[in-house]
Design a protein around this nucleic acid. Sequence first.
DNA 1: GAGTGGTCTAGACCACGGT
DNA 2: CCGTGGTCTAGACCACTCC
Lengths: 233, 233
Amino acid sequence: MQQAKQSGYRDIKEVILGRVRDKTWPLGTELPGEVALAREFGCARATINRAMRELAEEGILDRKRKAGTTVKATPARHAKLSVPSVRAEVEATGASYRYSLISRNVEKAPDWLRARLSLGADQLVVHLRCMHYADSAPYQFEERWIVLDTVPGAETEGFEAIGPNDWLISEVPLTNIDLTFSAALAGPLYADFLDVAPESPVFQMNRTTWLDGAPVTFARMTHPGSYKLRSSL
Amino acid sequence: MQQAKQSGYRDIKEVILGRVRDKTWPLGTELPGEVALAREFGCARATINRAMRELAEEGILDRKRKAGTTVKATPARHAKLSVPSVRAEVEATGASYRYSLISRNVEKAPDWLRARLSLGADQLVVHLRCMHYADSAPYQFEERWIVLDTVPGAETEGFEAIGPNDWLISEVPLTNIDLTFSAALAGPLYADFLDVAPESPVFQMNRTTWLDGAPVTFARMTHPGSYKLRSSL
DNA sequence: GAGTGGTCTAGACCACGGT
DNA sequence: CCGTGGTCTAGACCACTCC
């Protein structure tokens, strides 16, 4: 009589996690099969399945047909990084958000961009530069290129009142994103807009966006400060 | 006869995604209930449930009891950032990995660390400094503090042969992680170890680790270069 | 070939949260 | 109150993969 209350898949996850933590099932061990565990916990196989499936998604277990379920030798840690609109990001801190367009041009995609987005020759992009402010303090400098073939609507949008990110979210939802972070020196351009010394470090985030394999946009966000995210499990 | 083959939950997810993309169900719309969709797709409610549940986890739908399921007004984009051991990170690039301990001390946790980890007064930590090399080129400078109350085994570990991260992974698996990224100037210390000019920018990643609410370790990783991650959906 | 996970079903009960 | 999603069950068939 190990348990009185009937166990839900959450409880079962906890028990399994506990057994991994206390090394009842050390890293690399093979776990009992679903049927065996279902018997042990007195529940349906589907319940065990859900518990183990989620633990596998969370990077703690490895599951293979026929081979069975094992505890991952090197539990994959992963953080969930939310990629909100700048507006949401700023307003979440309680500050008021302000957006300002610096320049907007339609031009042929430069070579480095064509390479990065797998664009054909002579493809046109909208090239934007803009600033985001938090309580009238510089928050982020954004430089962005939008592929017109994928997002034709960008040709007639002036981006004077609405930021490109906010606009794109409603125009082209459900995209895939590549992110790169790096550190750089401010230099004269960023120093000017971000109100920092040219020789100070800035934090950059490069964001490439795809819609079903078609390139949508490339953006480089430059911060004077730092960036924060929190993992779940 | 809209579909010949029977639909699995993956197909259903695709259909729903398509209807959001082509604005059959615009952002903010309320979707039909599970029973209705089950009827439409000719499948069991559980199948619809799984499809919609996963879409909700992926940040595309909002689900509430009684209220029903709606398309998120601002689809939450999130990237999955894997946090591998440095060793794996280096070896994944094909380079050979080398680890080197610089210093190891047991000391009282400094005030800023006590604040960050919610430590009590006089709690002891192991303070480490070490370097990670990729093909004998400096890859990362690591400064780390390990809380002895949570990980007593760290007192007797010398960390001369094995890096603290690799050691902690096998000692204390399944922890929660907080991450912060930022840019900084190298300064004399980092310049020396990372073999860059003192006035060059460096990329820093701060990692705080918890085990069931108990503070495990705080680490600051400093890179001469940049850091990369890719989102899933 | 055989064993394990992957998925689906039909039905049931529960819990939350608008009304 | 009562509708919607949340979860569980018992049973079934399938698909992958190791032997």
